[in-house]
Amino acid sequence: MTNPLPWQKSSFSEGGDGNTCVEIADACTHIAIRDSKDPARGTLTFPPRAFATFVEVLKRDTSGTAT
């Protein structure tokens, strides 16, 4: 039997129901991401180091400093 992942919703969720964002779960060996509006549809998974790089690129792109 497997334990369910500890999903956490982004603190930047919009709207009153908070369902317009992503949820992230840290499973130690990988980071999983899913759509909070349709969590059963599927997940993306990244090794922790690749996820950290992914987040850093997103931060740069949204701050307008990406080249």
Rank of each mutant, 00 (worst) to 15 (best):
I24T: 03
P6V: 03
F12H: 15
P39I: 05
I24N: 00
K37F: 02
T2V: 07
L44W: 13
A50N: 06
R41Q: 11
T67K: 14
T53K: 07
A32I: 02
S13L: 09
S13T: 13
K9A: 11
A52S: 09
Q8F: 01
S11Y: 08
P39L: 04
A27K: 02
G16E: 14
A66R: 06
P6S: 03
G16R: 14
G42T: 09
A50H: 11
P39A: 06
F46I: 03
G18D: 05
E14Y: 11
P47E: 13
K37W: 01
P47T: 15
I33N: 00
I31R: 00
L44K: 03
D35Q: 08
T2K: 13
D17W: 13
A50Q: 15
E23C: 03
V22T: 05
W7E: 00
S63R: 12
G18C: 09
E14H: 13
T20C: 10
G64H: 04
S10N: 07
K37S: 05
R41H: 14
A32K: 12
T62Y: 12
V22S: 03
A66C: 01
R41W: 15
T29E: 14
A25K: 00
R49V: 15
S36H: 04
K59F: 00
G16C: 10
A40L: 13
G18T: 07
V22C: 05
L58P: 00
T67G: 15
D61Y: 08
S11D: 09
L58G: 14
T29Q: 12
C21A: 06
D38G: 11
H30L: 05
V55E: 01
P4I: 07
V57W: 10
C28F: 10
A52T: 09
K37A: 11
L5S: 15
H30G: 06
M1I: 14
T65M: 06
P4M: 10
T62F: 08
D35T: 09
C21R: 09
E56A: 15
E14I: 11
L44N: 12
A50W: 03
T65W: 06
A27M: 03
T62Q: 05
S36L: 05
I24C: 00
C28S: 12
K9T: 11
N19M: 15
P6K: 05
K59V: 04
W7I: 01
T62V: 12
T45V: 12
G64S: 03
S10T: 14
N3Y: 05
A52W: 01
G15A: 06
G15D: 04
T62L: 06
S10Y: 09
F46N: 02
C21H: 10
T29W: 03
N3F: 08
P47D: 07
R49H: 06
I24W: 01
G18Q: 09
T29S: 13
V57D: 08
R49L: 11
A32M: 10
Q8R: 07
T45R: 08
Q8A: 04
S11P: 05
F12D: 14
K9Y: 02
V55I: 07
K59S: 04
C28N: 15
K59M: 04
G16K: 05
S11M: 12
S13D: 15
A50K: 14
F54Y: 10
D38V: 13
T65Y: 09
D38M: 10
P47G: 13
D35S: 10
V55A: 11
N3C: 06
T29I: 02
L5W: 01
G18M: 08
